[in-house]
């Protein structure tokens, strides 16, 4: 400590110079519009470069995990293949018509920006208008629901994730089929709340909560989470705490869902409303 003071007093001239120079430069950068703009632009571009680097690094570090997730997903999809089922049917010739009833199409995308610590979190992905992304499309990861597309530019889109207090999803309990409204209370980035489940419904811990498919955004049955706890509120309804199956903190790859019949469904529903 004594040496520190001696050091400062010996070099007081240099320290004083640095201090006064800092004051001057602060004045300069805060009170001159031109300098302030230049500084802001520079920091913004530096931040952009750094963000990209950090994300690349993080992506690299979580390769093992990503691989595991992809593997699991592959296994699940493979299990759904017709070839995995033993059939006793005698094959008859059938023409494959790809336009027949394909309702949902998945577009893979990479997360380039993400936050989980705010009330209004947003996720940015590297696919945009030129890749066929449109507003109101659903977004899922291999683990479950992520959110809904709200903004699109030429090459990027923003997602309003489940972890945003403005988002409400229609969700149902897989076992019993009762549906309710799902939203985030803005506290715990691992948990959301499911309300409006009627009190006569059978609810128990470890019930799976999935998308209801009513909104024309998500297909029915996509995993959201598991019921962790529930209680009766307002007399007639259950309020359940749902532990999310998607981990938003290490999200790196997502799929955007295009619903080929979304337009049709919405148009039909709108005509009903006007009648």
């Amino acid at each position: 400590m004594r040496n520190l003071f001696r050091f400062i007093t010996r070099h007081h001239f240099v320290f004083l110079f640095v201090l006064i120079q800092l004051i001057s430069l602060t004045l300069l950068f805060q009170h001159n519009n031109y300098h302030r703009t230049v500084i802001a632009n520079t920091t913004r571009s530096i931040k952009g470069v750094l963000n990209t680097r950090i994300y690349t690094l993080r992506e690299y570090l979580s390769l093992r995990e990503t691989n595991k997730e992809l593997l699991e997903e592959n296994t699940r999809l493979r299990n759904q293949l017709i070839d995995s089922y033993k059939t006793t049917e005698v094959p008859v010739e059938k023409e494959f018509d790809s336009a027949y009833n394909k309702q949902y199409e998945y577009i893979p995308a990479k997360v380039v920006n993400n936050s989980t610590n705010k009330q209004h979190n947003f996720i940015t992905i590297n696919k945009g208008r030129i890749h066929g992304i449109e507003k109101e499309m659903g977004v899922v990861s291999s683990n479950g629901v992520v959110g809904i597309i709200t903004g699109i530019s030429q090459n990027f889109s923003t997602i309003i994730p489940v972890l945003n207090i403005n988002l409400r999803l229609s969700a149902k309990i897989e076992e019993s089929g009762y549906f309710g409204s799902l939203f985030w209370e803005g506290k715990d980035s691992r948990r959301v709340s499911l309300i409006d489940i009627p009190h006569h419904a059978e609810v128990s811990r470890d019930n799976q909560v999935v998308t209801s498919g009513y909104s024309a955004i998500f297909p029915a049955g996509i995993k959201i989470g598991t019921i962790e706890d529930y209680k009766i509120t307002g007399g007639n309804f259950y309020k359940a705490t749902v532990e999310l199956s998607t981990n938003f903190q290490n999200l790196s790859y997502v799929y955007v869902i295009r619903n080929h019949f979304q337009q049709e469904q919405i148009e039909l529903e709108n005509t009903e409303r006007y009648d």
Binding site: F13, F17, I20, Q21, S24, L25, T26, L27, L28, F29, H31, N32
Partner: peptide, 13 residues
């Protein structure tokens, strides 16, 4: 503000 003071302080230093 800050422009001339910064340069002059450097010079004095």
């Amino acid at each position: 503000p800050g422009l001339h003071s910064s340069a002059t302080v450097l010079m004095a230093f």
